[in-house]
Amino acid sequence: MKNRGLLILTLALSFGAGLSQGRTSAAQSLAPDFSLTDLWGKKLDLASFRGKVVLLNFWATWCGPCRTEIPLFIDLQNKYRNRGLQIVGVSLDDDAKPVRDYYRQLKMNYPVAVGDAGLAERYGGILGLPVSLVIGCDGRIHARHTGIADVSLIEQEIAHLLQGEGCRQRSPGN
């Protein structure tokens, strides 16, 4: 009987394993600032995006769920760029080369840098991929999505935050 229960549990876990682990509402703590160098040698400071909604995505090129999300994030960046969204990617690949190759291949349209364990720990630990954080114009973390994200939910969160005070919109053509 016990074994049968274990079998059923394992089945349930297996079928659920490919799904998102879900969203947690963060305590709206300030997103830790960081300063990295992006894939192309440019400085990437989180603080420089204050006044915009930031979607901070931890990912890796070899991570299947991450690769599923990236094209959707590219679309989101296109759709909301002029309304003040900035997506930032932090790859946890061991090496920048495959990240650069993937960036070119996908024609990614937002900055990406390679992160490390120190940065991951400052964000509460990135102990599985992908992880996406929605950061408001005030620099506070509004939501944390672990596992493959429900991008429509993220879009709703972004659209809501963009209406908040303190968001600076970018005029078309800038």
């Binding site: 876990l13 297996s14 394993a17 490919g18 799904l19 682990q21 890796a60 070899w62 991570c63 299947g64 769920p65 991450c66 102990l127 599985g128 991929l129 992908p130 596992g147 493959i148």
Partner: peptide, 11 residues
């Protein structure tokens, strides 16, 4: 491993 969901783990 534990990098990602079981069915997605490439490692």
């Amino acid at each position: 491993c534990g990098c990602c969901p079981w069915n997605e783990c490439p490692n």
